[in-house]
Amino acid sequence: MTLLDGRAREGRFARVNPVAKLAASGLIAIPLVLTLDVVSAATALVLEMLLMPFAGVRWREFWVRTWPVWLAAPLTALTIALYGEAGGTVHLEWFVIRVSDGSLELAAATFFRVLAIALPSVVMFLTVDPTDLADGLGQVLRLPARFVMGALAGLRMVGLFIDDWRALELARRARGVADRGRIRRLFGMAFALLVLSIRRGSKLATAMESRGFGAPGRRTWARESRFGVAEWGLMLIGLAIAGIAVGVSVLTGSWNFILGPS
């Protein structure tokens, strides 16, 4: 299984260490999590969209992969607008619904905040190969090899879920039990997939143990995970986006530190 398309695999951005991509996403997300205002999130989003063409991802691939984010952001904002903390002029009030200036402002901030945090994370990890990520976690971050290799093995099994689901569906249709009761069929197939996944996981764990993946001692790695100028540059870009967003928010008086006194 791979998360890369053809063009992204050959691009310069795809060769950046996944640990740096993880760090850059974190540097952008942390300050946005600490505040809830429109200015900081919108500023970060604008800067991210300006840099998006350099990620080496086709626009079609970008929209296909990020449509859940574009769907979740307005739905989250709508929830905040209807049920968020009231403040200022109340425009609509019915039962538990109360739309006011305060809730609308929080909704707008939430909308841009979700996009600014989620979009760069999705785009960066479109160009991440699971094996490269495991190499980086084990060699750069020095995480336990047993944990890293187990996570890599599990991640590579995710791609089989879709194939298993299709096989189960075709098998049920061949037996004539897939024409009625869609809800019941959904739960039955989900349970069957769970049982199949547990069995496959047990076999995989046994196979890995037999090959010495759980042996004590220092583990060797087939490929060296490099962390150089490109990786530090990407982290500096993430830090710059966060710093500019925070600076603009503070200068405009929009900074709203959510952990501060109310």
Score class of each variant (00 low, 15 high):
3 L>F: 14
4 L>N: 06
5 D>W: 00
7 R>I: 12
8 A>V: 10
16 V>G: 02
21 K>A: 08
22 L>Y: 05
22 L>R: 06
25 S>F: 02
26 G>C: 05
27 L>W: 00
27 L>T: 02
28 I>D: 01
30 I>A: 14
32 L>Y: 02
33 V>R: 02
34 L>A: 14
34 L>M: 13
43 T>L: 05
45 L>E: 00
49 M>I: 14
52 M>D: 03
52 M>A: 15
54 F>E: 07
56 G>L: 08
61 E>K: 08
62 F>L: 10
67 W>G: 05
69 V>Q: 02
69 V>D: 03
76 T>I: 12
83 Y>V: 13
86 A>Q: 05
91 H>T: 09
92 L>V: 15
93 E>I: 07
96 V>I: 15
97 I>A: 09
99 V>W: 00
99 V>Q: 02
100 S>C: 04
102 G>F: 00
103 S>M: 04
104 L>Q: 03
106 L>K: 07
107 A>L: 02
107 A>P: 08
110 T>C: 12
113 R>F: 08
117 I>N: 05
124 M>A: 14
126 L>V: 08
127 T>A: 15
128 V>L: 04
129 D>Y: 11
137 L>K: 04
138 G>I: 04
139 Q>E: 05
141 L>Y: 03
142 R>V: 10
143 L>H: 04
154 G>V: 02
156 R>M: 09
156 R>A: 01
163 D>E: 15
169 E>C: 05
170 L>Y: 08
172 R>G: 03
173 R>E: 05
177 V>M: 01
178 A>V: 00
180 R>V: 11
183 I>Y: 10
187 F>N: 02
189 M>A: 13
192 A>F: 06
192 A>T: 12
197 S>I: 01
197 S>M: 04
201 G>P: 11
204 L>Y: 07
204 L>G: 05
205 A>S: 15
206 T>P: 00
212 G>T: 09
213 F>H: 12
217 G>F: 07
219 R>A: 09
229 V>H: 13
230 A>G: 13
231 E>K: 06
231 E>T: 08
232 W>F: 13
234 L>Y: 00
238 G>V: 05
242 A>Q: 01
243 G>N: 07
243 G>Q: 12
249 S>Y: 03
251 L>I: 14
253 G>K: 04
254 S>W: 11
257 F>T: 09
261 P>R: 13
262 S>E: 12
